[in-house]
């Protein structure tokens, strides 16, 4: 009995001079939700593409349910369901026709296929609209069919590449719920996202990626420990950030100050003690603080701590 559904060993992939994936390794246990968290361009999709056998790694290998992505691609594909980042469906076919076609591509035939298509339509809540062409669906409905395709052959492992990008909150909630439901059915889910909240909510384990590398790996709690119990204070001021940046770094209790897009982020041991000092220092420099937000430690803080930049688009 395999313990790990996925074992990634030192994967490398370069496009010309750009190292998209640079020595990535991690393991995903069977039946867990594992998130790859990182900003756009971190190398998440390239990693998923290699694990889906769409791209051949320059170096390294990975095993998916014991099948090598280099030497046993058909074996990998047969245990795998892939939900691509972009909706990959035929708009001029109905949901049922789409599911039937993709079911055939996964080797389903006859009554088994028809029955499974009905089941999946039920799961994604589109039985009533099964005959409508996908082109007429809303973005959220298309996302659901997009996920449904990956479920047809009851895969042991599912890759979901940023499935909530560009959809409304309700559809997003549905998708997050369905990911948990898949886990509950015993499937292993490899989930990529650049939304910290999703990774935090869903994942058993998280690998944080940046510039092609895994920079942190562990459970949510383990990762948060990296930044200790520091609070994150986000502030905006009525002047250039440079006028207070250096002064704030010298304030007692402040561990880190970064500025990005007109917003200053301060990591501090205790925001209650530090905040009055920040106001005082600002006043001395002729700068007024216009907004303040305080956050408990989270993955955003971890990413900020590790890379010195915010985890956002």
């Amino acid at each position: 009995m395999l313990q790990n559904a996925i074992e990634v060993k030192n994967l490398h992939k370069a496009f010309g001079d750009l190292k998209a994936v640079d020595g990535v390794s991690f393991e995903v246990a069977q039946g867990e939700i594992f998130s790859l968290l990182g900003p756009n361009g971190a190398g998440k999709t390239t990693t998923i593409s290699m694990l889906s056998c769409l791209l051949r790694p320059d170096e390294g290998d990975a095993l998916v349910m014991g099948h090598s992505i280099k030497d046993d691609q058909m074996g990998v594909k047969s245990v795998l369901g892939v939900v691509p980042q972009e909706i990959a469906l035929y708009n001029d076919l109905s949901a049922r026709e789409n599911l039937t076609f993709w079911g055939k591509m996964y080797g389903l035939r006859g009554p088994a296929l028809r029955s499974r298509v009905d089941e999946v339509l039920e799961i994604i809540g589109l039985t009533e609209r099964a005959k409508d062409r996908v082109g007429k669906y809303s973005g959220g409905m298309k996302r659901r069919v997009n996920i449904g395709v990956a479920l047809l052959h009851k895969p042991q492992v599912i890759y979901m590449d940023e499935p909530t990008v560009g959809i409304d909150p309700q559809s997003r909630r549905n998708i997050l719920d369905s990911v948990v439901a898949l886990k509950n059915q015993g499937m292993t889910v490899l989930y990529t996202t650049h939304y910290m909240e999703e990774a935090q909510e869903l994942s058993d384990h998280i690998a944080i990626m940046d510039i092609g590398k895994v920079i942190a790996y562990g459970t949510n709690a383990e990762l948060v420990k990296i930044v200790g119990q520091m609070d994150r204070i986000t502030l905006t001021i009525n002047a250039e950030s440079g006028r207070v940046l250096e002064a704030w770094k010298k304030v007692q209790g402040v561990k880190q100050v970064t500025a990005q897009d007109g917003t200053l982020t301060v990591l501090a041991d205790d925001s209650n003690q530090v905040l009055p000092r920040l106001f005082e220092t600002s006043a001395l420099n002729g700068v007024r603080i216009t907004t303040v937000a305080i956050q408990e430690p989270n993955l955003e803080a971890v990413f900020l701590h590790l890379t010195g930049k915010a985890l956002r688009d």
């Binding site: 769409l54 795998l80 993709w102 996964y106």
Partner: peptide, 14 residues
């Protein structure tokens, strides 16, 4: 461009 061809390549189809 639609992404359906790459998706086909992720299925167990040569």
């Amino acid at each position: 461009e639609m992404g359906t061809l790459p998706r086909l390549f992720t299925t167990p189809t040569t």
